[in-house]
């Protein structure tokens, strides 16, 4: 069996790392977007009813 610097295993691992990286990136973007929406609603005084009661 020839030894290749790039084993098939490495490609598979790279795919997994890349996938996880993208998922984490998307999660960060989601939290950021959610924060923007929630905070701008707070400023406009348009609170969801449950929070408005507090």
């Amino acid at each position: 069996m020839a030894i290749h610097p790039e084993h098939e295993l490495h490609t598979r691992r790279r795919g997994r790392n890349l996938g996880l990286g993208l998922v984490l990136g998307a999660f960060v973007a989601l939290i950021f977007g959610l924060s923007v929406v929630k905070i701008s609603h707070l400023r406009e005084g348009k609170l969801p009813s449950a929070e408005a009661k507090q």
Partner: peptide
């Protein structure tokens, strides 16, 4: 050699397997 073939059986999962 035998160690290599042990991990060569496609045992390590790709991202799609978790999906």
């Amino acid at each position: 050699m035998s160690d290599l073939s042990a991990i060569d059986h496609g045992r390590e999962a790709g991202f799609g397997d978790y999906v």
